[in-house]
């Protein structure tokens, strides 16, 4: 569960002012907002990549406001995927487990499972440069899931994809969230995407987070 209390962040022209919201455990929450409203800034702050001017971030009941990014256990998928150009797809999926000194056999099994889940098996030996937009996003998602995150933060992961890939990835995200039950915060400005994915909808506007059209799956139209 993510709980944000009185969170204030300054970044460029964007000011997030005393934000209050929570993301329930095991749910798929979509945060919508116009371009420049501070969606990415908010995700980066939750991940510990931006300093906080005030307030508190609590993850699964613990105050992590001053924790370093590595200590938060958040799987982060940025908008552009930010794949590492010097690593293969296999090495991307193995990056987190390798850091945690996971035994080789366990790591191999994990990478194989993730590759199967995300349809990446034929790409394991490939470099990021040769991948399509959809493949890149799947690798970025797999890299984030490989650390068994308590929370998954997705920053417009389906942006700039063609319609078919967009639909496929949308379904994939939903399936993975259902299977893993990982608490997910997905940022987008696409209302159709939000309708398809969200258990809970939040709106970021004028530096404030407000509940969207539905706050629970039961209220979803």
């Amino acid at each position: 569960m993510i709980e944000v209390r009185d969170l204030t962040v300054r970044a460029g022209n964007c000011l997030l002012d005393h934000l209050q919201f929570s993301v329930p455990d095991g749910q798929y929450t979509v945060l919508m907002g116009a371009s420049g409203s501070g969606k990415t800034t908010l995700l980066e702050t939750l991940c510990g990549l931006r300093p906080v001017a005030g307030g508190q971030i609590r993850l699964n009941g613990r105050d992590v406001t001053r924790w370093r990014p590595a200590e938060r256990g958040i799987g982060y998928v940025p908008q552009d995927g930010a794949l590492f150009p010097t690593l293969t797809v296999y090495e991307h999926l193995a990056f987190g487990p390798r850091l945690r000194r996971t035994p080789r056999a366990v790591m191999d099994r994990k990478v194989t499972e993730l590759a199967a889940l995300l349809g990446l098996e034929p790409l394991l030996g490939r470099w990021p440069e040769g991948l399509s937009g959809g493949e890149r996003q799947r690798v970025a998602l797999g890299r984030a899931l490989a650390i068994d995150p308590a929370i998954l933060c997705l920053d417009e992961p389906l942006n700039a994809l063609d319609e078919q890939t967009h639909r496929q990835l949308c379904n994939l995200l939903k399936t993975i969230q259902r299977q893993t039950r990982v608490t997910t915060l997905h940022v987008t400005h696409d209302s159709a995407e939000a309708r398809h994915l969200a258990d809970q909808l939040l709106i970021l506007k004028d530096g404030q987070v407000a509940p969207g059209a539905w706050a629970t799956p039961a209220e979803k139209p």
């Binding site: 991940c47 990014p69 982060y76 794949l83 990056f95 850091l99 945690r100 890299r143």
Partner: peptide, 25 residues
Amino acid sequence: PRREQVALTLGCNRAQAFRRVVLPQ
């Protein structure tokens, strides 16, 4: 810099992110 930031969220400290992600690039 986004790549280094992602490495930090994946469990790297700054030295590990530098060695594993920044330096190879």
